[in-house]
């Protein structure tokens, strides 16, 4: 499983990196950068939450 960021959709709301600094960080332009793609059970739950909360619908989980 892997988190993907669609930069076209993203409007840099910051929800992902403020809620889940363990998975994302803000890059120099304000976009999220995925910093952890080895998702154990806990992190997978966090990633699912980030996908659900993203107001731009710019995140998805890919197998």
């Amino acid at each position: 499983m892997k988190v993907l960021v669609d930069k076209e959709k993203c409007f840099m709301s910051g929800e992902c990196y403020y809620n889940h600094p363990e998975l994302f960080r803000m890059d120099d332009d304000g976009y999220p950068e995925v910093i952890e793609n080895r998702l154990d059970q806990d992190l997978l739950r966090h990633a699912e939450e980030a996908v659900q909360v993203c107001p731009a619908g710019a995140l998805k989980l890919e197998k």
Binding site: M12, G14, Y17, M26, D29
Partner: peptide, 9 residues
């Protein structure tokens, strides 16, 4: 639209 990140396209 404002952003929590304070960064804009």
């Amino acid at each position: 639209r404002e952003n929590r990140s304070g960064r804009y396209k």
